[in-house]
């Protein structure tokens, strides 16, 4: 499958005098799991936030299914996406099941309350959480459970495209492994297109079909996961082997 689902064309983004992205060109194919890596502050999260319209590009184009991401009906556009946020971003004021079924309780995808709850419980089960968790509040959950609930919310409406922003940040290695496995399984069984932002190399190896490395505001290297260790790119080699010495300055 080589049909492009998301295309970034000469994308620039500045915050005042800070030019974070300086001409990103990248394609993510339909059904592919693309992992974006790069140092902190290189604009990886900015990239996915611009697809969703949370941030506006300074210049350049984002195409989703060959259509400009800014054109057309906004609700219909967003209904195609699911997103797992770095900190979970669960709504504190509502129980877990209402977080998961948020989209199914209002708007165009609204379902009867019982049906929405049943779907939420099913999605929670899919991410390894039992039914009793559904009635807890996010503040009552551990970090790992919150990530799983965030994951369940991201997949609740069966989106075509899923974004994962640092899915394993702040988790112990075992829980990180569980989340990586879940992400990979869910993307495969749903046939969704996935973009994951991470600097956790175990996540990269568990989740990615393709990898892109962003450095200095541009795509430094992109290719299939199988070529990651033989890229011959000194920047990528330094990053994936976590070396302090190399072309990437440690102090930025």
């Amino acid at each position: 499958m080589t049909e492009p689902m998301i295309q970034f064309r000469d994308l620039h983004k500045s915050f005042g005098s800070n030019h974070v992205l300086r001409g990103i060109d990248l394609s993510v194919n339909k059904g592919e799991s693309m992992v974006i890596i790069g140092g902190s502050g290189t604009g990886k999260s900015v990239l996915i936030k611009m697809v969703l319209g949370l941030l506006k590009p300074t210049s350049g184009t984002i195409l989703v299914d060959d259509k400009d991401s800014k054109a057309g009906d906004r609700d219909a556009f967003l209904a195609r996406f699911g997103m797992l946020f770095q900190g979970g971003a669960l709504f504190d004021s509502m129980p877990v099941w209402q977080n998961v079924a948020f989209r199914l309780l209002r708007g165009a995808l609204k379902r009867p309350k019982e049906e929405a709850r049943a779907i939420a419980v099913e999605k929670l089960r899919r991410v390894g959480l039992k039914e009793w968790v559904a009635d807890l509040y996010p503040a009552e959950l551990s970090g790992g459970m919150q990530k799983r609930v965030g994951l369940a919310r991201a997949i609740a409406a069966d989106p075509e495209i899923i974004f994962f922003d640092e899915p394993t940040t702040g988790l112990d290695p075992i829980m990180a492994g569980v989340i990586n496995k879940l992400v990979r399984e869910i993307v495969t069984e749903m046939g969704a297109t996935a973009m994951t932002i991470t600097h956790d190399m175990s996540s990269v190896r568990a989740i990615a079909d393709h990898v892109a490395m962003i450095h200095d505001g541009k795509v430094r290297w992109t290719g299939p996961i199988a070529q990651l260790d033989d890229s011959g790119d000194p920047y990528l080699d330094q990053f994936i082997h976590a070396r302090a010495e190399g072309p990437i300055e440690a102090i930025r």
């Binding site: 699911g82 946020f85 900190g87 971003a89 709504f91 989209r103 209002r106 995808l109």
Partner: peptide, 15 residues
């Protein structure tokens, strides 16, 4: 909600 990205989450949930 702004700091913990809950407002961004609302947008991604078409709200």
């Amino acid at each position: 909600m702004r700091v913990t990205e809950q407002i961004d989450a609302l947008v991604t949930l078409s709200t």
